[in-house]
C-alpha cells in the first residue's frame, strides 16, 4: 500500500481509534499514549497490513494488544488513580440528561476493560459476535458472556440510580409539604 494513501486512511481513523482507546482506558492521558503507540506500531509495520482488508479492524487489534500487554507489565500499578475511582465517588444523583450520562460513564468505568471492550464493539460499533470474537481472540461464547455481564452490571447501576432519584424527589416533596404544614396543593 502506498504510504501516503495509508497515512490518509490512518488519519481518517484517528478519532474513532482514540474513542476505542478511551473505552479501554477511561483516562485521557492513557488513551493518548495508547493511540500514539498504536500509530507508531502501525506505521513502522505497514508492510504487514494486507491491502484491501479492514484497516480500522487492524488498528483496533494493534491497540487492544498493546493495551493488554501494557496492563500485564503494569499489573502492580493502581489503575487510573485520579480517574475512575474519584469519579465514581464524586458523581451526584442526576437531575438532567447530561448528569445522567456522567453517572453512566462512572458506572462504565467500574467494569472490567474486557467487558467495556465488548460493549463498545457490539453495542456501539455494531460488530457481530463472530467479528468481536476475532478481534478479541476469544470464543463467541466468551463474547456473549462478557456482553451479558457488562449489560447486567450497567442495568443494575442505572436501576439503583433511578431509584435513588425517585427517593430524593419523594424526600424533597415531603420536605416541601411538611414545611407548608401539609397544605401544599
Amino acid at each position: 500500500m502506498n504510504r501516503q494513501d495509508a497515512k490518509a486512511e490512518l488519519i481518517s481513523h484517528m478519532k474513532v481509534l482514540r474513542a476505542f482507546a478511551m473505552s479501554l482506558t477511561r483516562n485521557d492521558a492513557a488513551a493518548d499514549d495508547l493511540v500514539q503507540d498504536t500509530v507508531l506500531k502501525a506505521w513502522t509495520n505497514l508492510e504487514k497490513f494486507q491491502e484491501g482488508t479492514n484497516m480500522r479492524a487492524w488498528l483496533f487489534t494493534i491497540l487492544r494488544n498493546t493495551f493488554y500487554s501494557n496492563r500485564r507489565k503494569a499489573v502492580r500499578e493502581v489503575e487510573d488513580s485520579t480517574g475512575s475511582i474519584t469519579e465514581s465517588i464524586s458523581v451526584k444523583p442526576a437531575h438532567d440528561g447530561r448528569l445522567q450520562l456522567a453517572e453512566f460513564r462512572a458506572a462504565l468505568n467500574l467494569l472490567p476493560a474486557e467487558q467495556r471492550e465488548v460493549l463498545t464493539l457490539i453495542g456501539v460499533l455494531q460488530y457481530s459476535y463472530e467479528e468481536a470474537a476475532e478481534v478479541c481472540g476469544v470464543k463467541v461464547g466468551t463474547i456473549k458472556s462478557r456482553l451479558n455481564r457488562g449489560r447486567e452490571a450497567l442495568a443494575l447501576k442505572m436501576q439503583i440510580n433511578a431509584h435513588d432519584r425517585m427517593e430524593l424527589t419523594d424526600a424533597a416533596t415531603h420536605a416541601v409539604v411538611s414545611a407548608s404544614g401539609g397544605t401544599a396543593a
Binding site: 498504536t38 506500531k41 513502522t44 509495520n45 504487514k48 487489534t61 494493534i62 487492544r64 494488544n65 498493546t66 493488554y68 500487554s69 474486557e114 476475532e134 478481534v135 478479541c136 481472540g137 476469544v138
Partner: peptide
C-alpha cells in the same frame, strides 16, 4: 520493528 502487537489477538481472561 517490533511486530509483537500485530500478531493475532491474544486471548484475555
Amino acid at each position: 520493528a517490533d511486530g509483537s502487537a500485530l500478531r493475532r489477538p491474544e486471548a484475555e481472561g
